[in-house]
Design a protein around this nucleic acid. Sequence first.
DNA 1: GTTGTTGTTGCAAGGCCTTGCAATAAGCGA
DNA 2: TCGCTTATTGCAAGGCCTTGCAACAACAAC
Lengths: 147, 147
Amino acid sequence: MCCEQKFRDMLKERGLRLTPQRDMVLWAMHQLSGHATVEEIYALVSSKSAAVDASTVYRSLELLTEFGLVSVIDLGDGQHRYELLSIHGEHHHFYCTVCGKLERIEDSELLPALGQFERRFGYGIELEHVIKGVCDVCRAQGIEEIA
Amino acid sequence: MCCEQKFRDMLKERGLRLTPQRDMVLWAMHQLSGHATVEEIYALVSSKSAAVDASTVYRSLELLTEFGLVSVIDLGDGQHRYELLSIHGEHHHFYCTVCGKLERIEDSELLPALGQFERRFGYGIELEHVIKGVCDVCRAQGIEEIA
DNA sequence: GTTGTTGTTGCAAGGCCTTGCAATAAGCGA
DNA sequence: TCGCTTATTGCAAGGCCTTGCAACAACAAC
């Protein structure tokens, strides 16, 4: 897979090393496609090699995030979720804070609207990977309730 | 001040109680105008009354946040900052991730652009209290560097 | 003012994540 | 392949915040 090579290259570029532990974290993220918690990643890595420390998993995830290979998702429930970006393409998520629906938004859909916003707002903004709000269904219901 | 009364009313409305501890946290937030960390709030409350527990401060801040009287600011440095909203009016902040500049954005400036974005995006979104991005100065320098 | 109900507090324990450090091992050059 | 440099790991300790629980106290009713 391409992200392994990308990871290797980025490590080398910065004088860092590819260790079996780092490799395993990346492997685990592939297995747990979707949004994996640290707990899940740690459990999977541990099941493959008992001697990997939790702190190493945290450090590896931090590195992967810094490299832009992984994004952190915080739905506000105190559980951080990690998502492998490379196999999913460029995207964001929309999370409805009323019904809890989590929807994938392709960047190709999002960026034109965002560009327009930035031009009017005056700054280049970095949206969170998960954009929170109220979906149209819930909003319609909310309006009915008020009316 | 109006937020004390608002706090009282919201507590009463929900069958909750105004305790000296809660009162002191709100008082401390007034003293520490701007963006106060839990540490600062706890220190100030403690200096006034030694016997207030840290967990109570956390619980009070959670309540104030839930009531919308206080907002949490996370600049990504692992330090949560708390800001009293009522004395500052409706606003957001813009935080430049390159130079660290934190700028206040009045909602009256922000909302028209946001409304336009929402119409095009299709959902009602809730921006974080602090919007992150790159300011025009840093962006201009960045463009120079690339060119 | 007194009493009763029940929301709130302080304490201590626990969870989750980070950090300092000595031992280990990746990866480069010879 | 071997040795060296230094990034990385595992461990243990620590920090920060949350949580369960029994004692306490706010406040409503009388």
